[in-house]
Simulated assay, not measured.
Amino acid sequence: MALRWFHAAERRSPAAVAADADLLARVADGDGSALRELYERYARPMFAFLYRLAGDRGTAEEILQDTLLAVWRSAGTYQNRSRVSTWLFGVARRQAHNRLRGIPPPLPADPADGAAPEAGPEELAVSGDQVQQTLKRLPLAQREVVVLAYLDDLGLKEIAEILDIPVGTVKSRLHHARATLRRYVDARME
C-alpha cells in the first residue's frame, strides 16, 4: 500500500540522480520542457502525498500546480545538498502546509456540483474513506509525519530531511499523532 517511489529514488543509479539534478538546473535556466519532464517523473507520487494531506482530490491537484509554480520560480535555489526527489517533496510539503495551515481539509465534493463521484486511481491507492477520515482528525504537522512514516514508509531521518525539522521533532509528532489516533479509535469502539 505504501508508496515506494521515494525508496526507488534512493536506489537510483548515480547517473539517474545526476540527470534529475541536470533537469532541475535546466528548469532554473527557464527550460519549460525540463519542468514538464520533472512533472512526468514525480507528479504521481507527489499527488498521492498531497491527496493524503489534503483529503480532497481537487485541493491536492491545486497544491500540485502550486508546487510546480514554486519549483519553476525557485529551481535556482537548489543547492544539491539532497536528492532532487527529496527537494521536490519538500517543496510540495511546504505548498500543502501553506494552503492547509489552520484550515480543515475540505469535505468531499457534493455530486450536485458536477464533481466526478468515483475515486481516481491515486485515491483508491490510499485506501479509502476510513483512512482519510481518520487522517483529517490530525493537525497538519502530525498528519505529515504519519503519511510519510506509515503510508509512504519513510524513515525518521528521511522525514526530518523532507520536513526540514530535527529527528526528535519527527518522533514527538509521531508520538502525539499515535496518541490522538488511539483516542479516536478507542472512542469509536465504545
Rank of each mutant, 00 (worst) to 15 (best):
A125T: 03
G168S: 10
G32K: 13
A177K: 00
Q65A: 14
R99Q: 04
D29S: 10
T67A: 14
D31C: 01
F6A: 15
Y39L: 09
I165Y: 00
V185L: 10
P166K: 00
A16E: 15
A18S: 11
R143V: 09
F47I: 02
D56M: 08
G120E: 05
Y51V: 10
H97Y: 08
Y51K: 13
R143K: 14
R26C: 05
L50A: 04
H7V: 05
A15C: 06
A119N: 02
D110P: 08
P106D: 03
A119T: 06
K136T: 04
E118I: 07
S74A: 03
R137N: 05
L23W: 05
D110W: 12
R182S: 12
R94N: 07
A96Q: 03
R178N: 09
G128I: 03
N98C: 07
G58R: 15
N98M: 07
A119E: 07
N80W: 14
V146C: 04
A70P: 08
K171H: 09
E10V: 11
P166A: 02
L154H: 11
G120T: 04
E123H: 01
H176Q: 13
D113W: 14
I162C: 03
R173I: 02
D66C: 07
P108L: 12
K157R: 12
V17P: 01
A187W: 04
R101D: 09
E161M: 08
V170F: 02
D22I: 05
R137K: 10
P121V: 08
F47W: 04
A21S: 13
L140V: 08
E10A: 14
D110V: 13
E122A: 15
L156S: 02
Q133P: 00
D152Q: 13
A179Q: 08
A9P: 03
R4V: 11
A125R: 09
L148P: 11
T169M: 11
L38Q: 02
A75R: 00
Q142S: 12
S33A: 12
